[in-house]
Design a binder for these strands. Sequence first.
DNA 1: TGAACATATGAATATTTGTTCATATGTTTA
DNA 2: TAAACATATGAACAAATATTCATATGTTCA
Lengths: 123, 123
Amino acid sequence: MKRNIAEEHAESCEMIHHHCDVVEQVMGEMPQDEDLYDLADFFKVFADTTRIKILYVLLKQEMCVCDIAQTLEMTQSAISHQLRILKQMDLVKNRRDGKTIYYSLADNHIVSILSQGMEHINE
Amino acid sequence: MKRNIAEEHAESCEMIHHHCDVVEQVMGEMPQDEDLYDLADFFKVFADTTRIKILYVLLKQEMCVCDIAQTLEMTQSAISHQLRILKQMDLVKNRRDGKTIYYSLADNHIVSILSQGMEHINE
DNA sequence: TGAACATATGAATATTTGTTCATATGTTTA
DNA sequence: TAAACATATGAACAAATATTCATATGTTCA
């Protein structure tokens, strides 16, 4: 759905300010749309305090759902829902021991991602 | 609003599975609530494809609002709203040159945050 | 000064998302 | 096998959020 020239004039600046080759270069660096969505989804996981708390709790050791819930003073259901998201994103893994299911971090990136975020906000 | 013991039993496991000192240690590592909110807000910025695209565009060079909008094929208003959020979080800065306002990255962390995210999703 | 341009912003709308509640699934033990 | 326990999950609801539309602010130039 290409707009006509008159409309384009009305909605944006007269012409692109920078050289076209620069724009092309910039767009060349841009990841594929699919990767951009995955990237946004990845950061979305860290964009909630409950999930961050869970990750911090698991930083030291594995823990079962019930203990996480008690530690964070939240319902089992809320924690379980969030663990599901963390697992879907491959940030945590779990193992069953009888009735209990223990969760732990699945990836070492997590530590550095969190601490880099912390670095930034402490400036 | 402390619940009574009977209710607590109903809602969670009989007693905490791990040693209390471990839980205390885990909670000792936990950042302050205020920092947790700031951290979540920080990652929230990267949790949207439009903002990620803007950051990628600015990775190479500064650019005015209008050119960003044209490059990403979005409205000037949408870009302006998102630039406001990026600026509030100190991820971009701007300078005025006549009518035009040029935006650029405010921080070098951004590159490494983005590439660490990319690393993770490409596994 | 007025017209054209570049950007910012408030309100409205649609979509996404986190928690709660009720209940289902799966395991152990008496 | 029945009861108790640990976890998972679907539906409902409330809160947060991204975009659009209309319009305001601020700059330049004739």
